[in-house]
Design a protein around this nucleic acid. Sequence first.
DNA 1: AGGAGTTTGTGAACGTGAGAACAAAACCGG
DNA 2: CCGGTTTTGTTCTCACGTTCACAAACTCCT
Lengths: 228, 228
Amino acid sequence: MTSRPSAEPRDIPEATVARLPVYLRALTTLAEDGVATCSSEELAQATGVNSAKLRKDLSYLGSYGTRGVGYDVAYLRYQIARQIGVTQDWPVVIVGIGNLGHALANYSGFRSRGFRVVALLDADPSRQEEVVAGVDVRPFDDLEAIVEECGVAIGVIATPAAAAQDVADRMVAAGIRSILNFAPTVLAVPEGVDVRKVDLSIELQILAYHEQRKSPHLALTPIEEPAI
Amino acid sequence: MTSRPSAEPRDIPEATVARLPVYLRALTTLAEDGVATCSSEELAQATGVNSAKLRKDLSYLGSYGTRGVGYDVAYLRYQIARQIGVTQDWPVVIVGIGNLGHALANYSGFRSRGFRVVALLDADPSRQEEVVAGVDVRPFDDLEAIVEECGVAIGVIATPAAAAQDVADRMVAAGIRSILNFAPTVLAVPEGVDVRKVDLSIELQILAYHEQRKSPHLALTPIEEPAI
DNA sequence: AGGAGTTTGTGAACGTGAGAACAAAACCGG
DNA sequence: CCGGTTTTGTTCTCACGTTCACAAACTCCT
Ligand SMILES: NC(=O)c1ccc[n+]([C@@H]2O[C@H](COP(=O)([O-])OP(=O)(O)OC[C@H]3O[C@@H](n4cnc5c(N)ncnc54)[C@H](O)[C@@H]3O)[C@@H](O)[C@H]2O)c1
Ligand SMILES: NC(=O)c1ccc[n+]([C@@H]2O[C@H](COP(=O)([O-])OP(=O)(O)OC[C@H]3O[C@@H](n4cnc5c(N)ncnc54)[C@H](O)[C@@H]3O)[C@@H](O)[C@H]2O)c1
């Protein structure tokens, strides 16, 4: 190998970053099932990707496989977790404890995957008497104090769309630099702040688009290819 | 090769399809605000994309703008809605009425965007006495009857991961060909069935990856183990 | 009516990602 | 110790997506 100045953060393509958590989950399942080793083909099957793509993805992390054998499940799992940054716990605040906020607060998948909900915030005083999943709902104005105190870097927005931009602005001002937004709005944030959105309606509309194309021809068998 | 009839269905790139709902939402907001016309630059601002990209996206639908003027908000909005297929209502079933399922059932954004929840299904008999958002929770075994009766093409899975594949199989067998999956599992489905996933943990992990790169002060990764 | 000023639609350049294919590396059985 | 087998890591090519840049098409004002 060319002498790298140590395995320093080579930057990983965005498409690869988005798949690493999927591999991580599959490896966790394999580990729980007592599987010690797996090939790229097996892991590709489990995650629904092409095995060549999987190998290329993993190669961005380093050479953690053994030719002729495959990958050590526990070792690869650790390496991916380390690259993603989920070997440590990330404190998270959730703002907007309505229907969706309640579901998120109760979601056990957070904790088990390296995220810890340190605070639930809501602007509505009547919400603030609640305790959800063992965490007090606190006034939204406590945001800055909590971010400071707990070193929160990731915020989740589950408020109505009308409030989302304001909440985001406050989050950014408080020092949060990564936001997961469930409100159906485009958020404007300064450079250096990452926003990812989860939008139900958009997903359904994408499905509807494809569904619409499928419907007219029930037995749609495109015989476009002129057989050579 | 075959010069296609070049009727309406030119196929739209997947990346464009994913953005059309965002444009649609922005146009709806503009329409509600009484805006009659807007330029690609304005719409691009509102949706957070490059204006050239937006124009190219819209050009796949046809030439609905006017040079020197911009786009007619109401007309463009209708054209996008028609292309996506949300001028009609799509019946949807939700399976798994737990924390998340409740939130989804109560979500008003469905109805207002062309989707109608026609049934809530759960395998747990104790859930089946509930009425959520005016809809009865019914036994999962009613799936086939409901799909048939209401012509359901889109199903939402909000069950635990362990049940998701079974639910998906039943949905496919019942005739559903588009699935939105909230369970953290990779679903295997036959050709012709579309699956989209919404995965909280993956989104957070992607944020964590970038966050980790932003703040080297947390750099716990010391040095690699020397190879060999 | 004509020129000035806008804004669209698109061709071309560029960048990123996917997949096929294969040499290199490791193991295994004799 | 060696040839055969397996599977990785990587290279190459093609497809897709993004952005720039600009002619064409339209409005408005004089
Ligand atoms: N419910 C769903 O399944 C679902 C699905 C997709 C998207 N969404 C979106 O998620 C968001 C929340 O949905 P929901 O159903 O939970 O709504 P909700 O009305 O039940 O809850 C919103 C909560 O946010 C709080 N809030 C309002 N303004 C606030 C502010 N400025 N600061 C802090 N808190 C504030 C409210 O007090 C309320 O408790 C909405 O934007 C909705 O469009 C919801
Ligand atoms: N709660 C969240 O915020 C959240 C976030 C992200 C992902 N998820 C995922 O969404 C899914 C649901 O989460 P939840 O918190 O609502 O879980 P939950 O346990 O509260 O609800 C699951 C529901 O599914 C029902 N169910 C189980 N097996 C079924 C089957 N075979 N057929 C029909 N119904 C069945 C159960 O009776 C229960 O009502 C899980 O896979 C979870 O990982 C949840």
